[in-house]
Nucleic acid binder design. Structure first.
Lengths: 146, 146
DNA sequence: AGTTATTTGATTGTACACAATTTAGTTGTA
DNA sequence: TACAACTAAATTGTGTACAATCAAATAACT
């Protein structure tokens, strides 16, 4: 029997979201083990792969909606792994430009397999993942304009 | 124009989930500031409020699907705040029992206001939050049985 | 030019998450 | 009753998140 209290954990959308997100990250973790990337590192690589291998920290932060406190150390690890290099923008020395190394570019072909694998793992009878994605995006849109 | 690449960030359900979860946590953060609780601390208090103020660490971990590495320090903070007390189970000294203090129990009346406030902030034209919750639960169910 | 304001990224400090290991306590069994 | 197997928490170590602050560079203004 489910509690009808408005405070019951099972009645909170937030908890469903929180749990689903953690399960999703764990699912990625297994697949990303082969690439030796964490899940946020993978997201960062996605951005680099879709920007011809060159972005500023500011652009990356805007794309992932993460701040420098998160990204600076994360990128430092990608640099240490040899997937990314960092240099200052000559035109504006405040800016740091991230560049894909050859190893970083090469990793893409391995990463190409991940989306299909994830789809297989997530897809389930009676659940339209595309619809869920749209709803989550709508929720994010709504929450972010405040 | 959206990229049609399967690797494009915008095509990943995972990123929608990841972003929505972070936005939701931030939304809670504002409301919980008054209670001086973080979002995971709030979830922990929800569990205590719905269990007559008494749970073991193991039960709490099972309920929140978090492990002791996360919960031990989190609970330590709740104890330091005077909301929870800890004692050993006399029947089985391996077990730690968490108990609501009077202050912890009293906080519930303030927390009662949160769900309605969150609902107001999340609810949006053309988006059924109850449906979204159900879909996320279905996804979690699917991801956790593997 | 010199001062002020703004921008960019890095740094600091707090709080999760979670894998892996350790410690202490309990149970099952020869 | 030894003692191996198991269980519950705590601990350790790595990697995010994010608020707040800082330093350096640039822009804007007088």
């Amino acid at each position: 029997m489910t509690s009808t209290s408005t405070l019951a954990l099972d009645n909170q959308l937030c908890f469903s979201l929180y749990r689903a997100q953690r399960l999703m990250t764990r699912t990625y973790q297994d697949l990303l083990k082969e690439l030796e990337l964490t899940y946020p590192q993978y997201l960062t690589m996605l951005v680099l792969w879709e920007t011809q291998g060159s972005v500023t920290m500011k652009e990356l932060a805007a794309r992932l909606e993460l701040d420098s406190g998160t990204l600076t150390p994360l990128v430092k690890r990608l640099v240490a792994m040899g997937l990314v290099s960092k240099e200052r923008d000559i035109a504006d020395e405040r800016r740091t430009i991230l560049l894909l190394t050859d190893a970083g570019a090469a990793l893409r072909s391995q990463a190409e397999k991940v989306p299909a694998q994830i789809y297989t793992l997530c897809n389930s009878e009676g659940l339209d993942l595309h619809t869920v994605k749209g709803e989550l995006d709508a929720l994010s849109q709504h929450l972010s304009k405040r």
